[in-house]
Design a binder for these strands. Structure first.
Lengths: 221, 221
DNA sequence: AGGCGTTTAATACACTTGTTTGAAACGGGC
DNA sequence: GCCCGTTTCAAACAAGTGTATTAAACGCCT
């Protein structure tokens, strides 16, 4: 399928992700796609319709690219939580240092547009439900609903941070330290450790870091 | 001081924050400021210079608006950490549901421009140092530097989340639940609890939530 | 008052934007 | 071949953009 329509969609993705809706020009997209200027209006009606289609396609590709593992019924919740974090981090910053799909979705998160409602229901809500299910296995039944949600947001927030503020992290952390200690799996394991320690499923971090700090960090498998 | 220059800066702030650099027009700014179209070129040379000045001014105002408390020397680190989180959250979503200053800075975080380097050195770095100092008081001396940084990012990430993904949270959490349990101080206390529990300075959350969940949540003072 | 540097004002100028147009090219079916 | 709907193309359009220009108004000193 390399018809003009899909060529347009594929060209539009990275450009919209980089510059946002307003700042990208249909001329730019058409040039990148190698098609005539009028094509976007012919196939999508106008620029905005093309944008919405691009966003939909983006999150479709994003979930396919790094899917959640399907756990067996006896997988302990600690492992599920760690896997969940790893998947999130991988989607955020793993795939070739941030795919255009994620960059585009990030724009929608920060400034929701017409394409966003669908994004929430078909992407965020299901993932939140999975995470809430994992947390339920570790929390007492008396834990109120809003605390579960806030815990989920705490976890997601830590992952999202490296996507949103990645450039800032790059400026704050020296190059060599970043290379050695800030790889996606390392960050994922750190976040999982924080959450598990907070939930009381692991020793607190301060005691973990007291003894044997070399091996305590990189149990990456 | 209501000369044209400052009128321009004050008008430009919210508009740049809402629409970004590209999508805002100097005509819009001048109209809102009630000054002539040519003024921006007269006072700032061009649109970009005005933008940079606006960003600088934004973070100047942001720190003044909600300053960090100055703790006495014997303030326990747990209190400092909680205060730090509260300050961050207050800056993120507290002041009249997100001031334009924060919205503008958020744009720079997500997509750094020329004005960003200065933002990092004069705003983010000092705050990070304060936070690292607080964490140092709770961590063993053997804790490696990169883990401290990651812990700091975990904390900041959780706070940033409600600013970045605030609209998504609004769609995911029912209105009434949001009204009751998602006020800035409540969110701040939750995040502080997570971090303190992870560090082992409090009981784990799962046991906290087991007993007496009604009073355990809202120690707002 | 008069002169002068500073500020404001209206307008014009290129230029880019999204979109439209109408004709040309294509691809089968009879 | 010829007709047809579909797709491509180059060009043009109208609106909106940042910026430049020019003259008028202002404030202030002597």
């Amino acid at each position: 399928m390399d018809d003009t329509r899909t060529k347009l969609l594929e060209a539009a993705g990275p450009i919209f992700a980089d510059h946002g809706f307003q700042a990208t020009t249909v001329r730019d997209i058409c040039q990148r796609a190698g098609v005539n200027l009028a094509s976007v209006n012919y196939y999508f009606g106008d620029k905005e319709r093309l944008y919405v289609e691009t966003v939909k396609r983006a999150h479709g590709l994003a979930v396919d690219q790094v899917p959640l593992p399907d756990w067996s019924d006896d997988t302990p919740p600690e492992v599920k939580l760690r896997d969940f974090v790893r998947t999130l981090i991988e989607r955020m910053i793993g795939v070739k240092h941030a795919s255009w799909q994620m960059r585009l979705m990030m724009r929608e998160i920060l400034q929701p547009s017409a394409a966003c409602r669908e994004l929430v229901e078909s992407y965020f809500r299901p993932h939140l439900d999975v995470l809430l299910g994992i947390l339920d296995e570790m929390l007492p039944a008396s834990a109120p609903e809003h605390r579960r949600a806030q815990l989920a947001f705490s976890l997601v927030g830590q992952c999202l941070y490296y996507r949103v503020a990645g450039e800032i992290v790059n400026m704050l952390v020296p190059e060599e330290q970043r290379q050695r200690w800030f790889s996606p799996p390392q960050l994922a394991d750190h976040i999982a450790q924080v959450m598990l320690a907070a939930l009381g499923r692991t020793e607190p971090l301060s005691t973990q870091l007291q003894s044997d700090c070399a091996t305590g960090v990189c149990h990456t498998d």
